[in-house]
Write a protein that binds this DNA or RNA. Structure first.
Lengths: 112, 112
DNA sequence: TACCATAGTTCAGGAAATCGGAACTATTGA
DNA sequence: TCAATAGTTCCGATTTCCTGAACTATGGTA
């Protein structure tokens, strides 16, 4: 198992962020991680909405989020701690993540 | 040639917007359209950066932008008038487009 | 030490999206 | 009617995405 790659904040690309968050499963995961009080493992997301996500797919989704610079993951014993990089991201692209998350929240609220 | 489809503003999906703008050619096109004083035809984008975009690809890119709700295109004689739907979009997702465009501008400025 | 359970990664092949050349359509002007 | 311009559509080739199966890493138990 190769060590997990995290881009330095200066290498974070807008394109990668938008791509990462343009997937319904990934925004949902990111929204949960960003809104959580403490770090979450991947197991927290075996279902997203009512859909069951196979763990190989989940792993890929986390990889996309990680390599786009949206989250940081580190191993903690047998599981993973995932935290968002919101603070750094907001310095690089002020207001971006907040606006996307607000749009996501608004859309979800409208659907309900 | 089928009539061009434009989603009503309430049907615009965040997912579709992020996907549309996660492509370097499309953000560039959208940024130009959004920043232009008057409507632009597709011919304005036969090259993006230094890259030549084949017109079939260009047509697909415009379709993605259109169907995601980012732009409105209508035929004006032999060519197309493309305008952004920023005002409507900002009502649906306040600050979203502005934040993405600001990030795009910032990233481009840093690269130069 | 060995063995098991859990959490996540990697691999591989099939499905789906994307790219771009060639052919087609629509409109204008001569 | 013919030619030119602006886009669209079609379709085959490439690329990306999805996911079951196999693998890796760590911790616990004896």
């Amino acid at each position: 198992m190769r060590p997990l790659f995290h881009p330095s904040i200066d290498d974070v690309r807008l394109e990668a962020i938008l791509h990462a968050l343009s997937d319904p499963v990934r925004v949902e995961i990111f929204a949960n991680i960003a809104g959580a009080a403490c770090a979450l493992g991947c197991q927290a997301f075996v279902t997203v909405g009512d859909r069951v996500i196979p763990k190989s797919s989940l792993s890929q989704h986390f990889k996309v989020l990680r390599e786009s610079g949206l989250i940081r993951s580190e191993r903690e014993g047998v599981e993973m701690r995932n935290v968002s990089r919101c603070t750094e991201l907001d310095q690089r692209f002020p207001g971006l993540i907040a606006a996307i998350m607000a749009a996501h929240t608004r859309e979800k609220a409208a659907a309900a």
